[in-house]
Amino acid sequence: MSQSMSIPASQTRRPATMSAGMSDRWFSILLITPAMVVILVFALLPLAYALDVSFRFADLTRGRLGDFVGLDNYRIVLADEAFWKSVGVTLQFTVSAVVLEMVLGIAIAFLINGATAGKGIIRSLMVLPLATSAAVTGLFWRYLYDTQFGLINYFLGLLHLPQPNWLGDYTIALWSVVLFDVWQWTPFVALIALAGLQALPKEPFEAAELDGASTFRVLRTLTFPMLKPVLFLVLVLRTIDSVRLYDAVAVLTRGGPGTTTESMTFYLYRTGLKLFRMDYASTMAVFFLYAMLVASLFALAPLLKQFSTRASEG
């Protein structure tokens, strides 16, 4: 639709005799151009716009962009107590959601991997939470969480257990959002871990079994080390998505009660699209990007090194 994918076959049909080195370099650059064109244009343009706006006064309802204000926006945002509270909420949510999702996801993957029959059905049922948008499934979780009409409290009542006010009690509201996120994304982790498990070669495991290694030793020495790249990748992807938490909060609690479940991106949404202060919103976005870059420099280092060592084995 937007840019043609066809790399003319004739161009790459080098006679095999040409020194492989030069054409390798050209070939590798050719391969990444389609993806890089889209990413460069549609990442750098908005980033430049946001950077520019973060140095100006920009109240969208006043129409045109305001004049240059230097670092004032950064001073205001850094001193904004609500901003830091929302950063705290985001970190608290990310840590608990990602840890739960990884542990449960991997456990479910192993559980299903051992199952002899019905793997196909189980796998397709597990995609259900993602089969429709958080805007709709979130709506029905809000219905289930409702203290007057919801099913969760109805069943708890039957068992004579306490019936919490899931979304109204400010002490547990964030945990209700975490539970929804875990419900929606644990199957994602499990499915990818399962794909990783099934792609592992058989030989080493049969050899280990011959010399009677205990399942625990097999797990520790064989399975996990080989699964590490895929699991680490899923961890990184889930963390990036959890830190950008917006949908779950927008549909379940809208940041309420008060601001106890207001994640950073939701506070950014409120500043940018309700108060229309695009200057503060862009400043927070730049600050958020900076924090993520620093964090990922450390987090991604092992994965990147591992990618490049395996690439250079060729």
Partner: peptide
């Protein structure tokens, strides 16, 4: 991957 770290709202 860093392009994914920029909040959608600002974009």
């Amino acid at each position: 991957l860093s392009t994914k770290m920029f909040p959608a709202i600002a974009v």
